[in-house]
């Protein structure tokens, strides 16, 4: 039976997902499209964090800084210098990557809790700049009036659907980029560094360079998210580079699971949805979310995607035979 062939599951799921994503604006309401857009750009920030945590075992507290740096540059270059479309986002991402190149020189030397502290300090530095350098960043009130570009005659500012496809395109590109990095020899090398740095050095690998590259790639992913954040919300303020923004992404990655890209998106999706749903129901929604986290950490330490995978691996045989049985009864 076709339904029972495990090799078919991935391509089938991928095609269904592609069709769903491409037809989403016509299937659902504007509100749902808007939520999806939010989940995608915050998802990029979460993925950036998950990439470092999953592949290198390093938890960074400054990914939001790269997210924000890109957003700020889009805002400044567009509102202050009126540069035309492809320049602000490309420059924004470029500057964020450069910043990662600079901060990375310091950060990659540290591990574990020291990496955490160093990235905390560097992240706060960026936050302080955003908040204090008022002549450039307009301080705590932030920069407003950032407009999404017009693409091939379609305005992403006026139409949510156009914006959605614009972002879906970039988002898919980044997902492909990260997925390729993860399954390449480079990906193996990073996990090698995560599992045993001394062994990697003993095999002759440049451990520091590998870490450095991963740090820069992660910043690139966060920066792409930042660009879309600035375009979609039309505003950027110090909150987007803050520790709080970073911790939200961290919570999303714990929720979804750090080891898969899907987990990062799922975690962000759940968090952002709950944010909206629960805050409408009760004022104490933060408390509810806190309890939920406790439950996740205690009973599903690998996150929802990680646990789902474990359950799938354990019951794969049973589920597949169940599906096969279903097929047989459907077609007597």
């Amino acid at each position: 039976m076709n339904g029972s062939d495990p090799r078919l599951i991935k391509p089938v799921l991928a095609s269904v997902l592609t069709v769903l994503l491409l037809s989403l604006p016509w299937l659902t309401s504007d509100y749902f499209v808007m939520m999806t857009i939010r989940i995608m750009y915050f998802g990029l920030l979460t993925m950036s964090l998950c990439y470092l945590a999953g592949e290198l075992g390093l938890v960074s507290l400054m990914q939001a800084a790269f997210f924000g740096i890109a957003g700020y540059f889009v805002a400044i270059l567009q509102t202050r210098y009126s540069l035309p479309f492809p320049i602000p986002p490309l420059a924004g991402i470029g500057v964020a990557v450069l910043a990662a190149g600079l901060f990375g020189l310091l950060a990659i030397k540290a591990k574990g809790v020291y990496f955490l502290m160093l990235t905390l300090v560097l992240g706060q530095l960026v936050w302080a700049l955003a908040s204090q350098w008022a002549s450039m960043t307009k301080g705590d009130s932030g920069i407003t009036g950032i407009y999404a570009p017009v693409l091939f005659g379609f305005s992403a500012e006026k139409s949510k659907t156009v914006f959605y496809f614009f972002q879906l395109f970039a988002f898919s590109g980044v997902v492909w980029f990260l997925a390729a990095l993860k399954r390449s020899p480079f990906g193996l090398m990073l996990r090698g560094v995560r599992d045993s740095e001394t062994r990697m050095a003993m095999l002759g690998y440049p451990v520091m360079l590998l870490r450095y590259l991963a740090f820069i790639f992660a910043a690139l992913v966060a920066a792409v998210g930042g660009v879309f954040f600035a375009y979609f919300t039309g505003l950027i303020n110090p909150h987007s580079v803050s520790l709080t923004a970073n911790v939200e992404a961290l919570m999303a990655s714990i929720l979804g699971g750090i080891n898969t890209l899907f987990g990062a998106v799922l975690g962000t999706g759940i968090l952002k949805t709950l944010d909206v749903v629960l805050s409408g129901v009760t004022e104490r929604y933060v408390l509810v979310m806190g309890v939920m986290f406790l439950v996740i950490i205690m009973f599903a330490p690998k996150g929802i995607a990680g646990s789902a995978r474990q359950i799938w691996e354990a019951y794969k045989g049973k589920m597949l035979s169940f599906l096969a049985l279903g097929n047989k009864t459907a077609k007597p």
């Binding site: 090398m189 996990r191 090698g192 599992d195 045993s196 062994r199 095999l203 690998y205």
Partner: peptide, 19 residues
């Protein structure tokens, strides 16, 4: 033993063969 504990046997040896 100083191994890549979260990786498979093949991945472990691949890393050495790759270099």
């Amino acid at each position: 033993s100083n191994l890549f504990m979260q990786m498979t046997v093949q991945e472990n040896i691949f890393l050495a063969a790759w270099r």
